[in-house]
Simulated scan of single mutants.
Amino acid sequence: MESTVITVRTGGRPSVVDLTGQAADFVAGRGDGLLHVFAPHATAGIAIIETGAGSDDDLLTALDDLLPTDDRWRHRHGSPGHGRDHVLPAFIAPYATLPVLGGRIALGTWQSVCLVDPNGDNPTRQVRFSFLAG
């Protein structure tokens, strides 16, 4: 298995960051296999979603509706409502595994590999790409 870690700057606000290009560069020329994308963080996830047409903002809005940033959370350190960020991985897993065919990720037409980070307290994230040859 081959593996690398990239650093992703998410800034100080909730964000959806498209990692598709970086993931594609990692698997380029590797043949067939599986790409595993993993965010080793308690408050971030990996989503396969359309970006650029508003779906990324819609996802953040849906998360705000489902998991409000208010004082209901028992986990209370960090910014107000930060406890909801620790619940996020139960809804958006911190990993995704994707098929790679001929050195290309087999994504659908509008699909992108994205880091979902609602936690503005940590502006820099790590993401691990691993390739398992088939």
Rank of each mutant, 00 (worst) to 15 (best):
A93F: 05
P118I: 06
L59G: 00
L63E: 03
W110I: 07
Q126A: 06
G12L: 10
G81R: 02
L98P: 06
G108T: 07
F26G: 00
R125A: 01
G108F: 10
T124S: 05
R128K: 10
R104W: 12
W73Q: 04
T109L: 13
V27P: 00
A47T: 06
I105H: 11
A133H: 14
P68R: 05
V27R: 00
D85Y: 07
D57Y: 05
L35S: 00
M1S: 15
P80C: 13
I48P: 06
L132Q: 01
F129P: 01
R128A: 01
G134M: 13
R9G: 05
G134R: 14
R104K: 15
D85K: 04
G81V: 07
T109Y: 13
V127H: 00
T61N: 13
V116N: 02
D71W: 10
G134P: 05
R74G: 14
A93V: 11
A62W: 11
P123W: 07
S15Y: 03
S3H: 13
G11F: 10
S112Y: 04
Y95D: 11
D70W: 12
Y95A: 08
T51V: 14
G81T: 05
I48W: 10
V87T: 04
G102V: 01
S3N: 12
F129R: 05
L19T: 03
G31D: 09
G31E: 11
C114Y: 04
I46S: 01
R30Y: 08
Q126N: 13
V113T: 03
R104S: 13
G134W: 15
D117W: 04
A62N: 09
M1C: 12
L115M: 08
A106C: 13
T20R: 08
H75A: 11
W110M: 06
D18G: 04
V37I: 13
D57Q: 10
N119M: 01
V100T: 02
S15F: 04
G134E: 15
